[in-house]
Design a protein around this nucleic acid. Structure first.
Lengths: 218, 218
DNA sequence: AATAATTTTTAGACAAGTCTAAAAATTATT
DNA sequence: AATAATTTTTAGACTTGTCTAAAAATTATT
C-alpha cells in the first residue's frame, strides 16, 4: 500500500495528465501540491522505484498503467465520498472537498463497493465530474465551456472547472446549479460577458465566470 | 489538531482508564499499541506538553479533562462509523473494527453530527459498547458477564468483551448475537462451563466464552 | 554561440515517530 | 537491607517527508 503523501502525488499527476498529456513537470506538481520542487523531485524518485511513474531526469513524469489505475481509484473514492456527503449527509457542493480529501485515503475495497451501491452507482460527483469505475475507466461526456456557447444557443449546466467554495457559493447565489438550462441571449464583444436566461431569470455574467462552467449543448 | 499517532495514544489511555482508574503504565500502553516502551515514553512527554495527560516520571499517566474529552470524541467517531458500516453498508460486526480505526481520524465535526443523525442517534455500537455523546458523556448500562449468571437465571446479550473477528465469528456460528435471550440451565463446577438455552436451542459453552459475553439480567 | 533565465536536482538539515541498547529508577525477593 | 527482577527513561540511530541553499542541466535570449 501507498502512503497518503504518495497517493496525493499520483492523484495530482493524474489530474495534470488529463489536461496536458505531456510529461508532467516537477514545477507543475509542486505548484498544485503547494510544496517545493525539491520535495517533488525526491518523491518522484520514490514513485518511480515503486513503478507508479516513469521518470527520466529533467524530463518530467508520466503515470504507468499501474500508477494510473491506482490514481483513478483514489479519484473514484474521492468522488464517491463527495456524493455521499451531499446525498446522505446534506452537505452542500462547496463543503465537500476538504472532507473528501481525507476520506479518499481510507483503505477498504468493501467499504467503497458498498458505498457505491448505497449511493445507487452514481456516474458523476456533485460538481459534475465523472466517477471512475472499479477498473479506472471513466465515462466522459462531451461538455463545453459556457464561454464557448454562441448567442441564441442553449445548453444544460453539467459541471464546473473551479470547485473552490467561493466560486460554488457564488453560483448558488445566482441560482446556477447542475442540471439547469441556460440560454445565451447576448455576448458582448468588448469583455466577452454574457447575458443568459436561467429559470426564466435574466442574468449577466463575466467571461471569467463563463470560463468555469461546463455546458452540454442542446 | 492532533496527529493520528497522538490520537491513538489518548484513545488507548482512555480505554485503559475505564478498566483500572489508576495511573496508566508505560508498559500497559506499549502492550496495547504493540509498540515499545521507549516509544511510549517519548510520546507521553509530547502528550503532556499538549496538556492531554498528566505525567510524572515513573508514575504512569492520566488523561486531563481536556484529554478525556478528546479521547471520548475519537471513541464516539469510531463507534458511529461502526454503526454506519453495519447498518448502511452491510458489514458484519466482525468486519468493522479495522475500517473504523481509519475512519475515526477524519476531522469534520459536521460529518460526525450528520452521520449521527443519518443513523438515528444510536446509543450503542454493533458490539454493544456505548457511544459517547458530543460532550463525551456515555450512558453505561449495568451489564454483567455471562459467566457470573447463576443456574436458572436469564438475561439478554448486550455486549462482548472481546471484539476480535475470530470471537465474533464464533458467536455468529453459535447464534449468539446482541439482543438474544439466554438462560443458564447448568453450570459445571469442574470447569465453569455453562449449558444455556438461546432461541430454544440448548448450547454448551466454555468459561472462556462466557467471560467475554455481557448480559443484562432479567 | 555565448550568456541569461529558468527548471530541476543534489546536499544537508530538520521534525515526527519509531526502534535498539544501555542506564536509571522502582519494586520484589531473599 | 541488600540483591534481583522489572519497569521506565535516555541516548543515539533510522525512516518518511519536508525544507533551504546551492549546483547542474535545460531552455530562452541576445
Amino acid at each position: 500500500m501507498f502512503s497518503q503523501s504518495e497517493e496525493n502525488y499520483i492523484k495530482t499527476i493524474y489530474h495534470l495528465e488529463t489536461i496536458s498529456n505531456k510529461g508532467i513537470s516537477t514545477n507543475a506538481i509542486a505548484k498544485k501540491l503547494e510544496t517545493k520542487a525539491s520535495s517533488v523531485s525526491d518523491m518522484i524518485k520514490k514513485l518511480s522505484e515503486k513503478e507508479l511513474v516513469v521518470y527520466k531526469k529533467y524530463q518530467g513524469v508520466k503515470l504507468t498503467p499501474f500508477g494510473k489505475k491506482n490514481a483513478a481509484n483514489i479519484v473514484r473514492k474521492h468522488r464517491l465520498w463527495e456524493v455521499f456527503l451531499v446525498d446522505k449527509l446534506n452537505f452542500s457542493w462547496d463543503e465537500v472537498h476538504e472532507v473528501a480529501e481525507q476520506l479518499e485515503h481510507i483503505k477498504s475495497p468493501k467499504l467503497i463497493n458498498q458505498l457505491d451501491a448505497l449511493l445507487g452507482f452514481p456516474t458523476h460527483d456533485p460538481h459534475g465530474d465523472p466517477i471512475p469505475d472499479k477498473d479506472g475507466n471513466l465515462n466522459v461526456i462531451d461538455k463545453i465551456l459556457l464561454s464557448s456557447l454562441l448567442k441564441t444557443e442553449t445548453g444544460v449546466c453539467v459541471g464546473v472547472d473551479d470547485s473552490s467554495s467561493e466560486f460554488l457559493q457564488f453560483l448558488d447565489k445566482k441560482g446556477i446549479t447542475l442540471g439547469k438550462k441556460i440560454k445565451v441571449l447576448e455576448k458582448e464583444d468588448y469583455d466577452d460577458s454574457l447575458t443568459i436566461t436561467i429559470e426564466n431569470q435574466k442574468l449577466s455574467i463575466s467571461n471569467k465566470i463563463a470560463n468555469n462552467i461546463y455546458i452540454k449543448k442542446l
